[in-house]
Structures are given as structure tokens and as C-alpha cells.
């Protein structure tokens, strides 16, 4: 399997009132194509920063980031936008769906960007929102809103799906349903999934688990066997 991401000595340093904060400290990492990767760590470990840098939302202070052997850390704003448009999908903890648009319109927002999108009805079906497609976000539960977010990301047919704490605002049952959807997508579309979470039980469904603490990778675990989302022992 080829590397979808390779990062060399990437650091991210923030200037703030109390001095400098090293969010990432000379990280080296490779992520294989088609894998489910879980980045695990407590609050402040640097996992969200890592996600932001891989996804082009933020730039590293130093180091190199490669996406399919193409260096992306020196992209300008336009190039980064294109990179995200053509290759990535995002799922956020706070869903970030547009309250003035219906479910299907929110998903269409993602579809509109892609030159090779998936069938919108199929995607809506995949996330089990067919009967809710004309509803507004305020009429949905948290889990349903997160699935809208997933569908919007997925319909683009991205190569990589970034998920920042996708189950952070959800209960166990709903969280498992969301994770199950992600697993099915990975299986069906071979989409690489990079999931950032502080919930260690999710790591059992991942192919690779990257443990982070204080801006450094402390351990990389390759799971020989992964379990389905329904079987996860929830933390």
C-alpha cells in the first residue's frame, strides 16, 4: 500500500501570552492509503493540530508534509483550497452543518464541489437519512446531524476523510452507529479515514493507532485484527 501521507520532522509552535506553545514537536509519520487511522491522546496532546496540518487547514512551523508524494506544506492559500476540494472530506465534532439548509441541501453543498461525486441518494441511504432529507438541522438529533456531516463529506468521493472527535457530542449508541457508518464507507469506497479522538475504545476498530502526548508520538500500534463498531467497549 502506498503512503497517502508522509510527514518529516513537522513542528507547530504557537506564540501566546505565556510564551511559546509547542503543539507538535518534530513529528515523523506515514499513513497508508485505505486505512482507518485513529489518532489518540488526551486534551492538549497535539492530535487536533496534527489533523489540521495534514488537512491543510493549518501550516506547520517547520518540517515537510507529503500527500501522495506531493509536498503540501508550502502550498499557498489557493493551492491548499484546491487540495482540500479535490481530495478531502471533513467531519467535525460540532457537526458544522448550515442551519438554514435542509439535510439534502447540506449534502449538496459537498456534492457541488466534486468533479466525480457519489450518487447523493445512495449516500443519503448509506447514512440512513432518507426519510429525513427534507428536514432542517434543528429537527434532527445529534447523531442524525453528525450523519448529515458524514454524508456531506462523503458525497464528494474524497480520498481521505478527516474526522475530528466525530462521536464527542454523542451517546454510546449513537456514537457506535456513526462509527459503523464510517466503517462501511471505508469498506465500500476504500476511503482513508483519519479519526482524532480521546476515546481509547475507538482505537480497536482502527488499522493503525497513533498515540500522542505533549506534541509527540509516543506509540504507533498496528492492529492485526479490527473489530466492528458495534462491538466496541465504550469508554
Amino acid at each position: 500500500m502506498e503512503n497517502v501521507y508522509k510527514i518529516n520532522k513537522v513542528s507547530k509552535i504557537y506564540d501566546n501570552f505565556s510564551g511559546k506553545t509547542i503543539a507538535l514537536n518534530k513529528i515523523n509519520l506515514e499513513i497508508k492509503d485505505g486505512e482507518i487511522v485513529v489518532i489518540l491522546g488526551p486534551s492538549g496532546s497535539g492530535k487536533s493540530t496534527m489533523l489540521n496540518i495534514l488537512s491543510g487547514i493549518d501550516n506547520p512551523s517547520s518540517g515537510e508534509v507529503y500527500f501522495y508524494d506531493k509536498r503540501i506544506d508550502n502550498f499557498n492559500d489557493n493551492e491548499l483550497t484546491n487540495y482540500r476540494k479535490d481530495n478531502l472530506g471533513f467531519i467535525f465534532q460540532s457537526y458544522n452543518i448550515i442551519s438554514n439548509l435542509t439535510v439534502s441541501e447540506n449534502i449538496e453543498l459537498g456534492l457541488n464541489l466534486s468533479t466525480n461525486p457519489l450518487d447523493i441518494d445512495e449516500v443519503i441511504n448509506t447514512v440512513e437519512l432518507t426519510e429525513h432529507k427534507d428536514k432542517y438541522p434543528y429537527q434532527l438529533s445529534g447523531g442524525q446531524m453528525q450523519r448529515v456531516s458524514i454524508a456531506r463529506a462523503l458525497v464528494k468521493n474524497p480520498k481521505v476523510l478527516f474526522c475530528d472527535e466525530p462521536t464527542g457530542a454523542l451517546d454510546e449508541n449513537t456514537g457506535k452507529k456513526v462509527l459503523k457508518s464510517l466503517q462501511e464507507i471505508n469498506k465500500k469506497y476504500k476511503t482513508t479515514m483519519i479519526i482524532v479522538t480521546h476515546n481509547p475504545s475507538i482505537s480497536e476498530m482502527a488499522n493503525t493507532v497513533i498515540k500522542m502526548n505533549s506534541g509527540k508520538i509516543v506509540e504507533i500500534i498496528k492492529n492485526k485484527k479490527t473489530i466492528s463498531a458495534e462491538e466496541l467497549r465504550w469508554a
Partner: peptide, 11 residues
């Protein structure tokens, strides 16, 4: 909405 669309890849 603007930030979301930017993240998604809208120019």
C-alpha cells in the same frame, strides 16, 4: 458558513 465552505474547498 464562510469558514466551513473554505475548509471544504470553495474558492
Amino acid at each position: 458558513t464562510i469558514s466551513l465552505m473554505k475548509v471544504m474547498g470553495y474558492k
